[in-house]
């Protein structure tokens, strides 16, 4: 469901991500300026692009939570999927920047040096821990609220934590093995590996968001749940005139068109409708079920 407390917790999670992202951008920027490393330059581009994506997500959620004009009474599933689509596109763009930069550095290699390398080593340790914690938190909230936006953020933070560890290793090895001539290629090669990991993550975010953005019918297992409940209440209604169901964003919407005995009171009908709706909603996560009273078959 799309309760206001759920949106507030999403906004809080997104705001924390924005603050962490802003600090990360400043640190990676200073490290990239003070060092001659393709990994650090790529890290700055990647971090900046990710920060923009997280910032936009937070602004979108904040607008929804702050709004009181009932513009989003039907939930924010579509908006979340659009944001996820944008996050995925930003990740792809960041990946391309890293690849181009790495190729340039392979063609014109040089040893990494400067205070920026040491700033980055410290920053990778700190941000590696922060990103791991944020990733775990986002995945946990996404599971609880079935939110594609928080899931994509969780994937983003996981990718970043992985990047932190990898950059730490790449910089450490480049420094430790600087006596070998081939060590100049560790830096650009490592940035290509990071680019590959971002690509995989971006494909995952894009495919799930794009798929969820399209309204589609429910899976067979969920359809069977609806039919089983209707079979269980077989003697409580007069005729079944149709079932309409769709999955839109993170939500599931079910409409059941039933005809009732005209001799039944509204109270009796309401009891049946409530029981039916609650039992279906209990079995299909994030579902909203409505029973419409009907008399003739809907064509």
């Amino acid at each position: 469901m799309f309760g206001s407390s759920g949106n507030v917790s999403k906004a809080e999670a997104a705001r924390t991500a924005v603050i962490a992202g802003a600090i990360d951008v400043l640190v990676t920027l200073s490290a990239a300026i003070a060092a001659h490393s393709s990994v650090l330059l790529a890290d700055f581009f990647k971090t900046s692009l990710e920060f923009v994506a997280v910032l936009l997500s937070w602004l979108a959620i904040r607008r929804i939570v702050g709004g009181s004009n009932h513009q989003f009474d039907y939930g924010i599933g579509k908006l979340e999927n659009l944001s996820s689509l944008f996050v995925g596109s930003i990740m792809l763009l960041g990946m391309l920047v890293i690849v181009v930069n790495a190729i340039a550095n392979i063609l014109n290699p040089s040893h990494i040096e400067g205070i920026g390398v040491w700033i980055s080593l410290g920053a990778q340790i700190v941000f590696g821990a922060i990103n791991s914690a944020l990733s775990w938190r986002s995945f946990r909230t996404a599971r609880a609220e079935n939110s594609p936006l928080l899931k994509s953020q969780g994937q983003l933070f996981f990718t970043r934590a992985f990047g932190n560890v990898f950059i730490l290793l790449a910089l450490g090895l480049s420094l430790l093995l600087s006596g070998f001539s081939w060590s100049i290629y560790i830096d650009p090669a490592a940035s290509l590996v990071i680019a590959a990991s971002i690509l995989i993550s971006a494909i995952g975010v894009l495919s799930s968001s794009f798929y969820d953005l399209l309204d589609r019918t429910l899976e067979e297992a969920d359809q069977i749940v609806i039919l089983r409940e209707l079979a269980q209440h077989f003697h409580d209604y007069e005729a079944l005139h149709g079932i309409r169901s769709r999955r839109a964003g993170g939500g599931v919407f079910v409409e059941v068109f039933l005809e009732f005995d005209p001799d039944k009171t509204m109270g009796e009908i309401q009891n049946v409708v409530e029981t039916l709706c609650h039992s279906i909603e209990a079995q299909i996560p994030s579902s909203q079920v409505a029973v419409a009273l009907a008399r003739e078959a809907r064509r």
Partner: peptide, 9 residues
């Protein structure tokens, strides 16, 4: 499920 729905109706 679409077939089952026919039989339920």
């Amino acid at each position: 499920s679409a077939g089952l729905r026919v039989f339920l109706g």
